[in-house]
Every structure is written in C-alpha cells, then in structure tokens.
Design a protein around this nucleic acid. Structure first.
Lengths: 244, 244
DNA sequence: GGCGCGAACCTGTCTAGACAGCTAGCCTAG
DNA sequence: CTAGGCTAGCTGTCTAGACAGGTTCGCGCC
C-alpha cells in the first residue's frame, strides 16, 4: 500500500506534532513553503493541511497562517474504542503502566453482578495510560475468567486490555455510567490531580455471550479530558430545506 | 454569508438524502454528470462528494460509483430524552423554574458555531429543573431563531424546551461533550452545590436541516447525578467486501 | 507622533486537463 | 459454452495557475 503525496505530507506534519518537533501554538510552514519543500502543487499541500485541520491537529487562520492546535484529549462516548488507538489517531504517543494484574475474590456486590459463586475469583487489572507522557486514564478492571482465560498472562504495557479482550470476546452490549467525582489517594496521585480537581468516572459494564463479561472503572482528569459522543437518530426525515 | 459552489453541491446532495429523494443504496450521479449539472470543474464536485463520504453520508466505490449510505444504526448512549419524562418515569415529580428567556447577541465564538452574521441574535433560555423539589439540572440553551420562531412565547415552566423543540424541529444529529468541572456563582447556587463539589457539564450540540440548531449546556450536581447509557454495537458496517 | 495606505503574505476556493487503478460488461477466440 | 481480453466509465489523485478576501507591517504623509 503505497502512500500518496498528500498522505505523506499529512503524516509528516502529524509525526512532527506527535514527536514534539512542533509545539502547540507554533506556526507551521506556509503552503507555499511546503510546496517547495515537497516539490508538489499547492492543491496537494492544501488538501493535506485541510484534512489535518478537520482532524483538529492544526488550526488555520486565513491571512495569518497554520498553527499546531492545542491538544484537547477527547474520547468517544458511544463506541468502545481503544484508548491507544484514539491517542494514536490524534498523532500522539501512547504508553501504559501496569499497577496490578491478579486474581481476586471480589466484594459481595461485584460478585452478585457477575452472578458468581461465593469465594470464586475474578481477574483484576489496574493500568495507567499516558498520552505524550501525561497521565490521561486510570483503568480498574474486573473480568470474568471464563471469558478471558489467558488474561493474567498478557503484558498490558504492550497491548491494552481492551485490545486483548476485543480479540477474544466480542462485545455484545455495553452500559456506561458517567459521574463527576473527586478523588484522593492512589488514583489522584496517578492522574496528577490537583486537590479538589474534578474527575470523570466512567463505569462500564460489558456483556458477552449473554453474561456480564467485565466491569471497568475509568478515571479521567477533569481538566484535561472530554468525553464526546455523536449519533444520528434513526429514521430522520426532513421537510424540503428551508431557503434562506 | 454566501455559500461556495462546493458547499452548495454538498448541501444539495445532503438535502436530497435527508428528504428521502435519494434512497439508501441508490446510485448517485457520477462526478462527470454533476460537473455538467452544476457547471463546475470536476475537482469542485470531487471535494463535495469526498467530504460527504467522510461524513458517512455517501459511500464511494472506485470504478463503480457513488451510493447513498445505509443509515448508521446505533442507539444513543445519550439520547435526547426529556428530563421531565425521565423524572416521571422514576415515579418522582418534576418542576422547573425559568431564569431567563430572551434574545441575545452571542459572543463571537458562539456566533461562529452557528454560522451567524455579526450582530444577529439567538434565542436564549436558562431553566432549572427539580426532581422532588431538589435541583437536578441547570439548562443554558442558545437556539437558532429560524428553527424555533415561537421559542420566546413558550412557558417553559409548563413544557420543557426539549419537548417544544422536538415537536417543531426533528433532530438530525447530536453531539455530546461531557466534562467534569467545578462551578461557583449563580449555577452553584441554583444547584445547591457545596464548595468544591464536582459538577457534570454536558455540552450538547444538535443539528437540524443540516445546520447547527442549538447549543445547550447542562449542569448536573456531581453528587446527586449519574448519566447512564446503554447501547448495542452495530454488528456489521456494510457488506461490500463480504460479497465475494 | 499618529494615521492611513499599500505591499507582501496567508489561506480558501476554483479551473481545465491529465494519468492511474479499478470494475462491469461486452465481444471474440478457442 | 466458456475463458480471456478489450473497452467504457468511475473514482482517486495531481498539476500549474488564478482570483478573492483577510491580516500584518512598514512607509510615507500630515
């Protein structure tokens, strides 16, 4: 799969932003300069930059120039996307650190949710995700061993839990509960939360093969994170467009 | 604000799809034909169609043609439900109090989002909703007067803005941005927030007739509120490759 | 010193033509 | 009748040049 020139330009700029060669707010070379650098027509450069702008990687100001956009982390509310993929899609680097990976006997309420016999164990993991070395998500996951027997043998600093699970147990149904909370203790420390800084807590339940598969708590720093969701209601129909 | 040719072509096709003139799966005119119809160069048509493709309104198959996309089936995590209905569904009583209902000249950023001429006004409302006399949501809404001409004449202590709007302007697309924030001032007072208590801020943008219809900020007290959503992932996208 | 004007530069958009890769359908040779 | 090739049509991409509208900044005039 060979890369077309405009894609090469796009990737080049995106890489420069991801690697920190271009700093947020910095002015980028003008289209004219890029034409000369890459030896292509302006329309080709224009398309690359225009697409970067619609992806919110750069901001363009007519008459002034093109600037590296201030990063605003955001994540899909509706879909379950891999946080690593999302970060990479923004042209940033992803890294994760594993704090726990073990089998535990869950508290009664959790055991009930999983319809678990008393004394049975669940697999449990705690992973902190970084975007450009800034902590962005702390993930606390309980998972049914039956559906993910090899869970404890994974290296979650290489593959994310979501990636691994998606491969072996397709998600059938998902429920999200979103709350605004404050945190102290370990989670606040991991996410570098200022005292009293609000924190988004997303509690996600996923069902697979008709049974509860995982119970995940995702903590996001309130000041550096947004959840977004977009959807199109089914069956919309429009009266003829209003003239202006 | 005058519309550029490629935008006119885009809107024309999009309106055709929205109005049902074009049926999902139907072949659209080729770029060549559109060139002749609109009297423009192929690059102009190409840009319009390419953007429609990235917006998932149409699907393009090289060597074959351009087709109206099948509507994306996904139920909203955050559907637009009426807060009054939700509260009543819980068996509680709903009451609301109107703090503002007026026409305002919005700040520049908001005017831009609405694609508004300078100095033009938007309708604006501020309503506080109570569940069993406990404040549960503060709603700050900006809305395009064109789409809701009678907005200012409504009594929003009787009918909620969402109820009214749903009746006159069906929603085409919705975007939610969820953040955890802290508030002070009027909103904190309305919601009886304790100092430093986190607060869920949902910024909702709704599109109707292909244009931004409303920009709504919903504030929920973090300690007394949860946002929940459930959805079933869309199984298969499209079957073009799966065919043979 | 202050003001206004113009030059230089930037992005946004459009044009007319070109080539490449792909597909579907027809048409011919075996 | 079938297999293979040919062709017409489609999208994807690129070019070289053009104009429009906005901003920045310096220079000259008052």
């Amino acid at each position: 799969m060979t890369e077309s020139p405009y894609q090469a330009i796009k990737r080049c700029i995106a890489d420069g932003i991801a690697s920190g060669n271009f700093v947020p707010g910095q002015v980028l070379p003008s289209e004219h300069e890029l034409c000369r650098s890459f030896g292509v027509a302006r329309m080709t450069v224009n398309r690359a930059m225009r697409e970067l702008a619609t992806e919110n990687l750069v901001r363009r100001v007519p008459g002034v120039g093109t600037f590296v956009a201030e990063p605003i982390a955001q994540s899909g509310l509706v879909e379950i996307r891999n946080i690593a993929d999302e970060i990479k899609a923004r042209g940033h680097t992803h890294r994760s650190q594993v704090f726990a990976l073990d089998a535990v006997v869950p508290p009664g309420s959790v055991a009930d949710a999983f319809d678990l016999a008393a004394g049975a164990t669940l697999y449990h993991s705690e992973v902190l995700h970084f975007e450009n070395d800034v902590p962005i998500q702390f993930e606390d996951r309980m998972i049914d061993p039956v559906l993910a027997p090899g869970y404890l043998q994974q290296d979650f600093s290489v593959i994310t839990p979501a990636q691994y699970l998606n491969g072996i147990a397709p998600v059938q149904e998902v429920e999200h509960v979103v709350q605004a909370v404050t945190q102290d203790g370990a989670i606040a420390k991991h996410l570098s939360l200022a005292p009293g800084e609000p924190c988004l807590l997303v509690t996600r339940r996923t069902w697979s093969a008709g049974r509860l598969a995982a119970l995940t708590k995702l903590y996001y720093p309130g000041s550096r994170f947004r959840l977004t969701g977009r959807f199109i209601p089914a069956g919309v129909q429009w009266p003829p467009a209003a003239q202006r």
